[in-house]
């Protein structure tokens, strides 16, 4: 388990270096780019952590896209009708837990094919959120907090410490998931049921219960990712996830199933997204907007091809547990 992940680390280092050089060259623009990168990385990171938790427990989750959409939908409309953003966010989380429960039920109890189960979630979410969509509603914004002293730090201050609360929560959650996965009994058990469930079972771990719990927890993380999209867009749009749930899977693979690896990969995606947006905004390059639009998706494919064989999935991912 101690193999270092060289590619993400090197890339993270390179992008940091590039950011510093850019900052020296044009501070304001760099600030805009990096700040946007951090925001764009949020949902990708949270989605990747969802996939990571599920797969580390032995359940493949390709329903992240749909879970994000359902959570954003519930979050938006509950916030809109209640007028309280917190109630909306709780609603979104509850919705994503239900979706997680559904995935757990179909893949752990019913032992249905997990790729198909995730696809059902994605199709259902797209249909459901469009069918019950109501036009012309607004919701109270997700609070934005500039952290007093830290935000005045040069360079990193405005980039890291002046965001919506969900962006902070992403930073917090990645640390928490890392610590829990590698430093607690729960984490050891989680990794065990993803690699060798029957061995874990023999020493008294309840594989079924733990998989349920972790898949629901994963659902909640995808829920936060959906709410994060809502934080940026400040209203719900049909199909607003736009493939981000799948990009998150690429982020997870690129980060080699490790929380901080996922963070590096998410920041890289975010940075490229930020640069793209800035170039487009400044009209620095005379390229049709459709080609800009392709970049994140092409990048995902390239990253997958680069990381593909190196990322070793947990041995039991995708296989229902039949008992010891």
């Amino acid at each position: 388990m101690s193999t270092i992940k060289p590619i993400p680390l090197v890339l993270a280092g390179l992008s940091l270096l590039a950011a510093i050089l850019l900052y020296a060259w044009d501070g304001q623009q760099t600030e805009a780019v990096v700040s946007r990168a951090v925001v764009e990385a949020g949902p990708l990171l949270l989605g990747a952590l969802c996939g990571l938790l599920c797969e580390r427990s032995g359940v493949i989750n390709i329903g992240i896209e749909g879970t994000m959409l359902m959570s954003a939908f519930a979050g938006f409309f509950i916030a809109s009708y209640s007028g309280v953003i917190w109630i909306g966010m709780l609603g979104g989380l509850a919705m994503s837990a239900v979706v997680g429960l559904f995935l757990a039920w179909t893949s752990v109890t019913l032992k249905q094919d997990q790729i198909i189960a995730g696809t059902i979630i994605n199709i259902f979410a797209l249909g459901f959120t469009s069918f019950y969509y109501v036009q012309g509603r607004t919701m109270p914004g997700v609070p934005r907090v500039a952290i007093p002293v830290l935000k005045d730090l040069p360079f990193v201050g405005p980039m890291l410490f002046d965001h919506g609360i969900l962006t902070y929560s992403a930073m917090f959650i990645v640390v928490a998931v890392h610590l829990m996965l590698y430093r607690t009994r729960w984490g050891l058990r989680t990794r065990a049921i993803g690699e060798h469930p029957s061995a874990a079972d023999t020493v008294g771990v309840n594989v079924i219960t733990l998989r349920y719990r972790n898949v629901i927890l994963g659902g909640l993380l995808a829920g936060v990712a959906g709410l994060h999209l809502l934080q940026s867009a400040s209203s719900f749009q049909r199909g607003m996830t736009n493939g981000k749930g799948f990009i998150a899977l690429a982020v997870m693979l690129f980060g080699r199933y490790r929380p901080f690896g996922a963070m590096g990969a998410a920041l890289l995606f975010g940075l490229l997204g930020g640069i793209q947006a800035q170039l487009q905004f400044k009209q620095a390059l005379d390229i049709p907007p459709q080609f800009f639009g392709m970049i994140p998706y092409l990048l995902t494919i390239i990253v997958l091809a680069a990381a593909g064989l190196a990322a070793r999935p947990p041995a039991a991912a995708g296989t229902p547990y039949e008992g010891a």
Partner: peptide, 19 residues
């Protein structure tokens, strides 16, 4: 390269749509 077709085909949907 072991790139899973579920992700690559979805990504190519967006690429083809834009193209």
């Amino acid at each position: 390269r072991g790139a899973h077709e579920v992700i690559t085909t979805i990504m190519f949907n967006f690429v083809a749509g834009n193209l």
